[in-house]
Design a protein around this nucleic acid. Structure first.
Length: 921
RNA sequence: GCAGAAAUGGUGGAAUGGUAGACACGAGGGACUUAAAAUCCCUUGGCCUUUAUCGGCUGUGUGGGUUCGAGUCCCACUUUCUGUACCA
């Protein structure tokens, strides 16, 4: 029988569409299971074979759960706002919406061919007003709430206003940008504008002067996770630090919860660790140092309070407010010159330039424990954004301070017994303290750990400072000076921002004549006509960043067409959270933090029932490209085969992988590929031209992109699905290599052949051997799916087929069981088989089989017999034989004599069902 | 620097502490065919022995350890990949 994959696949895809087979509805009688993929950004390049890897895995799991009787929610949509569409719009003048819509149509077309069980009725797009209405709405909620540290949750800003009116800041426990103190009377005397400015320090979505990553080339600010090694992740443009007034989200207030709740999640240890590092909790102390001839208190953060006797200087970040306050008139010129120099450097230049630089402010701080005067410097190795932007420098025990001290000839005082600081600092937090005795505190002889504790206690008692936990996690910058994003539902009155009415939502993205910034440097929305409220108040010109739309999309899928709420109470209570989330690990410090934050905020407001959005997370590996090379002999048009290239002086040239099959070049095709190669000559091996290969990123410029459409066209979606899973462990990165796909395709063809011989009317029971084979498969496939070990389950199908072929079995019951097991992997073919066997309904409504352990039991057990751990031969014992009987069988076996001869048997170990090991000597 | 993961044939990769290399690709040989494709059968970690079987030795990055027995557990090291970094 012929395996016509095109006909079979299009027919069943149509059947699923016609019957709404994968539509999900709330059904209180069934247990829910929510399987989610990270929705794609629809880029202009379309899908390559790497993109569907995770979708196939999640689809297998969804179909499997459904067969097990769960009510499965498995939606898909598009993360449609983003920089590439806008960059393209700038170049071509086309509206990003147009290109985005086109790209989405292309993605959909490609996805449909692979036969996913998505419920497309629930599709969402982040750029759809019906969707971004709720992104804007969530922003408004954040604007209207503050974080209460005592309640440890977000509370309405109106509570805070009431508190201020009654008590001022007295007794307020709110996460706040800066320390504020005022009385109720002072509050009540403020103008509305002043009050709003004060509140801005408390809002969860707030506007503030912050140090931002400014990317000149993109004309916008970027979040920390959008910058890597000083350049933008998208495009690789340089990024510099700049102070700007921006919208921010107070993610930092959630840092402790984001950290602690990681423990609840079934995520990979490495991903959780990445988030822990990103959140970056460190316990330390904030301490105040007096300043000579001044009332100023210099506040610093340190995790090494114990090293206070070794402080020989202080350092301020260039952007620190203290710099202006501490610079003496004599040093003013030098400091300003230094600040100017530093501000011209981009983030990247600062990172690359490891040279020590800095300047003396002219001021001296007073060490509170020794009373000694210590100089205060400015240097860019201290970061304004972390701690207080000022440090106490302990050169003996910090390598950065050490380098600085050596450069400026500052004293180095060792504080730990046996530490040699003549060449480098001793950074380890262990050892016995020395040189640490002052009038009020003596740390000498203590272990570092105890010294830290003792010092912390001391400074708290003396009011010199307080114990503090610091987090590296920054507030998220939420403004983008861009067009293609969600507009802020915010207008400005008297220079301060006000929220629009919720009735104004969705606030539609206006048309503009160009997607570039305005002549006076305003964002593109500055070009929009009528971009003001009916009263004439101007509307915010920035738009929201990419992560805004992707932070709560999983909630919207639960109830995508709801016009009254982000998600209804009913839908949220039924679907709750994502049971399985599949996607790339590259979102560890971006989307996966923001989503958790966003969800916790909505949880605080009582709008969602779960405080974590993604219960289990699986990261699929990246599929890399496999580029092929030909080798041109220098200054000729002659190409030499890979095995012979070392005999010549050659230049490797990438060749389009479509001209190569199993690393053998289609030489005629190559000549036709490009005019330069028209007259190419080849030096062959065994009559063939063998290409070399390398594993690289899959990209057009490397000629190594494999389009899933081509694979589906040639082999069918079922083959693609099985092969992608067969490629290797899901979580591992691996190169795409089309070479092995024939094996999988062959397997399906053989299966089709076997089914064609199966009689749908056959009612004979399975033979013992067939039954064993089938139940072995049920067990293996079930366990493998649970463990996301899809590659081994595909292998198990192949083994089962080989066994059934060897047994010459076409038993109907066996084939029916295999069909159900196959349904998650190769749904089209399974559907075809299912109907062939006489069923009218979809195989998706079948029941997942259970295995019978008894069917797997053998009458006899094979025991490998080892001597001193080395296996020598195999004996077959009855399954019910006692260990003693097995031992006797092993020892009396004729083959044993050879290994025992001339030696004594010291010990015999029989592990029932496993092995016999005989120790001789 | 720090953190995490990994290292097994020509290749992708299998192996609850119990006969390492399942399954697949590739390669070699054979059958069918006028021929090719497709299909089917056999061989395939390395080395040695044998006409062939039978058989032996060796083998999971390196060095130790635990164990009757280690690819698997423990310690140290090497290399690779990923993430992150003047975070005080």
């Amino acid at each position: 029988m012929e395996y016509n994959h095109k006909e079979i696949e299009s027919r069943w895809q149509q059947y699923w569409r016609d019957n709404n087979t994968y539509r999900a509805e709330i059904n209180p009688d069934k247990k829910k299971f929510y399987v989610l993929d990270m929705f794609p950004y629809p880029s202009g390049a379309g899908l390559h074979v790497g993109h569907p890897l995770g979708y196939i895995a999640s689809d297998i799991y969804s179909r499997y759960k459904r067969l097990q009787g769960f009510n499965v929610l498995h939606p898909m949509g598009y993360d449609a706002y983003g920089l590439p569409a806008e960059q393209y719009a700038i170049q071509t003048g086309q509206h990003p919406e147009k290109t985005t819509t086109e790209n989405i149509a292309r993605y959909r077309n490609q996805l449909d061919k692979i036969g996913f069980s998505f419920d497309w009725n629930r599709e969402i797009r982040t750029c759809d007003p019906e969707y971004y209405k709720w992104t804007q709405w969530a922003f408004m909620q954040m604007f209207d709430h503050y974080y209460d540290l005592k309640a440890d949750k977000a509370l309405p800003i109106s509570d805070l206003v009431a508190h201020f009116a009654a008590n001022g800041t007295e007794g307020v426990t709110a996460a706040c940008g800066k320390e504020l103190n005022f009385s109720a009377a002072e509050w009540n005397a403020m103008t509305e504008k002043e009050q709003r400015e004060v509140l801005m320090n408390y809002r969860i979505a707030y506007q503030g002067e912050t140090m931002v990553n400014w990317c000149e080339a993109l004309g916008t600010v970027l979040a920390n996770d959008e910058v890597s090694e000083g350049v933008s992740v998208r495009g690789g443009h340089p990024v510099e630090q700049k102070v700007m007034n921006q919208w921010c989200l107070r993610v930092s207030a959630y840092a402790p919860r984001l950290l602690d709740d990681l423990n609840k999640l079934e995520w990979s240890e490495s991903l959780k660790e990445t988030q822990r590092n990103w959140i970056g909790r460190s316990e330390g102390a904030e301490m105040k140092f007096g300043v000579k001839d001044s009332d100023l208190q210099l506040e610093i953060f340190t995790t090494r309070a114990d090293t206070i006797f070794g402080v020989t200087f202080m350092v301020l970040a260039p952007e620190s407010e203290y710099v202006a306050q501490l610079t003496t008139p004599e040093q003013k010129e030098a400091v300003e010159a230094y600040l100017k120099e530093v501000s011209h450097k981009t983030e990247r230049e600062r990172q690359i330039d490891k040279r020590v630089s800095g300047v003396f402010t002219g001021s001296y701080a007073i060490n509170p424990l020794t009373g000694k005067e210590i100089p205060v410097y400015v240097s860019d190795y201290v970061l304004a954004g972390y701690g207080t932007g000022a440090i106490m420098a302990v050169p003996a025990h910090d390598s950065r301070d050490y380098a600085f001290a050596r450069h400026f000839n500052l004293p180095v005082i060792p504080l730990i017994e046996g530490a040699d600081v003549s060449e480098e600092s001793f950074d380890a937090k262990e050892g016995i303290m020395i040189n640490s005795e002052g009038p009020e505190l003596n740390l000498n002889g203590l272990q570092v750990k105890d010294a830290i504790a003792k010092t912390k206690k001391f400074i708290e008692e003396k009011g010199l400072g307080k114990v503090k936990v610091n987090y590296r996690l920054r507030d998220a910058i939420f403004s983008r000076q861009r067009y293609w994003g969600e507009p802020f539902p915010v207008y400005y009155k008297d220079g301060v921002p006000y929220l629009m009415d919720t009735e104004a939502l969705p606030l539609l993205l206006p048309e503009v004549d160009s997607y570039l910034p305005t002549a006076d440097g305003q964002p593109p929305l500055g070009r929009a006509k009528g971009w003001h409220t009916p009263e004439g108040y101007p509307i915010e010109l920035c738009t929201m960043p990419g992560f805004a739309g992707s932070s709560a999309y999983y909630l919207r899928y639960m109830d995508p067409r709801n016009n009254e709420a982000l998600v209804s109470k009913e839908a949220d209570e039924y679907w709750q959270d994502v049971d399985l989330y599949v996607g790339g690990a590259e979102h560890a410090t971006g989307h996966l933090i923001y989503s958790r934050f966003w969800n916790k905020f909505l949880y605080d407001l009582g709008l969602v029932v779960k405080d974590e959005p993604f219960r289990k997370l699986v990261n699929q590996g990246m599929i890399q490209g496999r580029s092929n090379f030909v080798y041109r002999i220098k200054d000729t048009n002659t190409f030499v085969s890979h095995g012979l290239k070392d005999n010549y002086d050659v230049t490797p040239i990438r060749v389009d992988i479509n001209l190569v099959s199993n690393d053998i070049l289609d030489t005629d095709g190559f000549r036709a590929w490009r005019p330069d190669f028209k007259d190419a000559e080849f030096i062959l091996e065994d009559g063939k031209y063998h290409c070399g290969y390398a594993v690289e990123k899959m990209s057009k410029s490397m000629f190594n992109v494999v389009n899933p459409d081509d694979i589906v066209e040639r082999y069918g979606a079922d083959t693609l699905r099985l092969y992608e899973m067969f490629l290797g462990p899901l979580e591992q990165s691996k190169p795409w290599d089309t070479n092995g796909i024939d094996g999988v395709n062959r397997f399906l063809k053989k299966l089709v052949g076997l089914f064609s011989k199966t009689d749908p009317e056959d009612n004979t029971p399975m033979s013992k051997e067939v039954r064993k084979s089938v139940h072995k498969l049920i067990k293996k496939v079930t366990q493998d799916i649970e463990n996301f070990s899809f590659n081994t389950s595909v292998a198990a199908f192949m083994i089962a087929l080989n066994e059934l072929t060897a047994l010459k079995s076409t038993n109907r019951e066996a084939m029916e069981t295999i069909t159900i097991l196959l349904a998650p992997f190769a749904p089209h073919l399974a559907e075809e088989f299912w109907h062939q066997l006489g069923h009218d309904s979809s195989v998706a409504d079948a029941k997942w089989p259970e295995w019978d352990e008894n069917a797997l039991k053998e009458d006899t057990v094979k025991y490998p017999v080892s001597f001193n751990g080395k296996s020598r031969f195999v004996i077959e014992a009855p399954a019910d034989a006692t260990p003693k009987q097995v031992e006797d069988m092993a020892l009396t076996n004729p083959a044993a004599a050879k290994w025992i001869e001339g030696k004594t048997v010291k010990k015999v170990i029989v592990v029932p069902g496993k092995i016999v090991n005989i120790v001789v000597g």
